[in-house]
């Protein structure tokens, strides 16, 4: 038996360190991992000891790898495209939910038109006709614009 005090101190010191190392077992690693992943602060010493442990422990290294695999697989899960039909349907519902200024303007404009025509003294049938042609032209343009709106929303 070595009685040299220095050798005894070194020997005891190693044993103390070994005991500490042994304390960082699989349970300690799982606890460390859970705290780290949950955003708790971890000391540098704990990080070092966990790295040492996971290098030698197959079970804990598999545990950490399984967590990583779940994250990686989750990121690779297929994502679904949205059909153009659904996009158009959403746009249509949004468009319909809008209070339209034109909807209010149309009856006001029509009423003003009727009053204007009623008050106009027309001398001849040609006068009536020229105003009528103008009015029909405007209505036609309105119809074309509406039809264009519909065609665009369908396409």
């Amino acid at each position: 038996m070595d009685q040299n005090p220095i050798n005894v101190m070194i020997d005891t010191g190693w044993k103390t360190m070994e005991t500490q190392e042994e304390k960082f077992d699989c349970d300690s690693f799982r606890d460390y991992y859970a705290r780290r992943e949950s955003g708790h602060s971890i000391s540098e010493n704990e990080n070092m000891r966990s790295s040492e442990h996971v290098e030698t422990c197959i079970s804990c290294s598999a545990f950490a790898k399984q967590h990583e695999t779940i994250i990686e697989t989750m990121a690779s899960l297929p994502q679904f495209d949205v059909s153009e039909k659904l996009t158009q349907s959403i746009l249509q519902s949004v468009y319909l939910s809008q209070p339209k200024k034109a909807d209010l303007l149309l009856p006001i404009g029509a009423a003003a038109g009727v009053v204007f025509f009623a008050l106009l003294p027309f001398d001849s049938i040609q006068g009536w006709l020229s105003w009528g042609v103008g009015l029909i032209g405007l209505c036609g343009l309105q119809v074309l614009l509406k039809s264009a709106e519909r065609t665009e929303s369908i396409s």
Partner: peptide, 14 residues
């Protein structure tokens, strides 16, 4: 004529 008019109106609107 209607088709032409519609296309023209689309262009005008855009």
């Amino acid at each position: 004529l209607l088709n032409f008019g519609t296309q023209w109106a689309i262009r005008l609107e855009k």
